[in-house]
Structure formats: structure tokens, C-alpha cells
Design a protein around this nucleic acid. Structure first.
Lengths: 134, 134
DNA sequence: CCGTATCCTTTCGGATACTG
DNA sequence: CAGTATCCGAAAGGATACGG
């Protein structure tokens, strides 16, 4: 073992599909953590073809705090998945949309969301079985 | 807004693709949080056709603590995604494998992992651009 | 070998108040 | 409107010790 937790530096490029998690600072794991994050998934799934304003996103993702929405959008922008456009008007208007890179991820995220929607009953049933078995 | 954080009960079934995040206790969001979790994704991606022992998983997912591996595997078992088989031998031997339900998720998770592998360079580049632009 | 229990640190993220 | 800054409680998760 390498010692510290997950320093998130030191690119490793993760050789093969069954080994990519051998090193703690694995780039792929770091990125997975980022995009498979609670709010990121919702934003990417929500942002389809069009663009959305900050407040619009906030309204759609019910319960997200202003802070977390800002933080998450910044990370997505930094990762090149979301483009942020500031319109110099008063009151300020900021639009968010997926970049080309972001759109390639959108498909995958959608299929994850769809899977969840389609199987939520199976999961609920499994949980009941598990819980009553104890 | 409904008040408290994310109580995770009260099924809502999330009407349509652009509204599923309107309610905080949305079942789909709760499940997404569960499976798109740091360790769960790695386990589901790792568990393909065969079964794996606890220690084997622990070795593959470098840096995971015994506690988190146990906790995560229990959740996956509870959700009906992973089957746990205890062999009554000494020393104990426990095998983990995907259930049928788990296998349907495996595909989706793999495509997410694959996306990450394929685009890690794009992301690294985007981050550099973003960071040097400040 | 495969856990569970406990403790304790670190991180996450909400609430709130304030700005251009 | 769209943020930023600060504070602080809650939860995640590692380290360690112990048990069947």
C-alpha cells in the first residue's frame, strides 16, 4: 500500500480494466469521484441541448443550496464539461450549457438515470426482503 | 421548498425526466446517491461474470478500508445488486457476485468508467486551461 | 479470513450575511 | 440575479482493537 489517502495528483493512467484501482492516486478514480458526485450527475442529466440559467437550475434541482450549486458548476466548468456564459446586463444573467465533451458524457449519465428509474421498484423490493430477513 | 435535507423516505416516483429532482426525498435521487457512490461504482465495475472473495476485492480496490468495503458490500447486498455467499469453512470464505439485477447495472457503470478512461486527457487539459486562466 | 465496534479526524455541505 | 465568505454541525470514513 502507498500510505496516504487520495492525494489526487500523480497521473497513473490505470493500465487495464481490472487494475485501474491499484493505485490510490489513480486519475480515473479521481475523475469518477468528481463526475459521479451527487449534484454533478443531476446537473449533467438536466443540461441537455439547451442552456439554463443559474436560478433555473436551482429551481429544478430542488434542495440544492446556492453554495453547492455554484461549487459544483465551477468544478464542471473547470473539467471542461460545462460552459459558463456571463451576459453583461443588469440584473446579471449567466447561462450554463454542456460543452461537446460534456455532451458525450450526457448520454452515459442519462443511461444511469434511466436505469435507476426503471429499477427503483426492484431495489425497493430487495431492500424490504433484506430488512425483514433480519 | 420542503424544509429538511434529504430524509430518503416517502417514495415519489419522479414523474418526468425534467422534473425528477423537484422533490428532495425523490427515490431516484436517493438510489443514484447510493450506487454512484465512490466505492460502489468500483465494486460493480470490478464484479463482472465471476465471483470475488472479500480479500480479493480489498486488494483490487487499493486504499479501501476494511470498514468501508464491508459497509458498501452490505448496502449493495441490501439493494439486491450483489449476492453474498458464506462458505462454512475455516478459515471463513465469503464470495461476492453480481445478481441478475446487478448485471444489468454493470453495463451502465462500465460505460461510465470507459468514458472516464477515454476522456481523462481531455479533462486534464481542460483543468490546466481553466487554472492558468486565473 | 471476514468481519464488528469504537473512536476520532476530516470533509461535506447547509445557513446566513454580504457584494457587484 | 448570481454569486462570495464565514461559520459550524453532521456525516463520511480511516485507524485500531477485538471476535467467531
Amino acid at each position: 500500500m502507498k500510505s496516504v489517502g487520495t492525494p489526487q495528483g500523480t497521473d497513473c493512467s490505470c493500465p487495464d480494466a481490472f487494475q485501474w484501482d491499484r493505485r490510490e492516486d489513480c486519475e480515473v478514480r479521481q475523475i469518477l469521484d468528481r463526475i459521479a458526485d451527487k449534484w454533478s450527475l443531476l446537473i449533467i442529466a438536466l443540461l441537455d441541448d439547451g442552456s439554463m440559467r443559474f436560478t433555473e437550475l436551482k429551481r429544478m434541482i430542488d434542495g440544492v443550496s446556492q453554495r453547492m450549486l455554484t461549487v459544483t458548476l465551477r468544478q464542471l466548468e473547470r473539467d471542461g464539461l460545462v460552459r459558463r456564459t456571463v451576459h453583461p446586463v443588469v440584473p446579471p444573467r449567466v447561462d450554463y450549457e454542456l460543452t461537446d465533451l460534456g455532451r458525450t458524457l450526457h448520454e452515459t449519465v442519462q443511461s444511469l438515470v434511466r436505469w435507476t428509474e426503471e429499477h427503483q421498484d426492484d431495489i425497493a423490493a430487495a431492500r424490504q426482503r433484506f430488512d425483514s430477513a433480519n
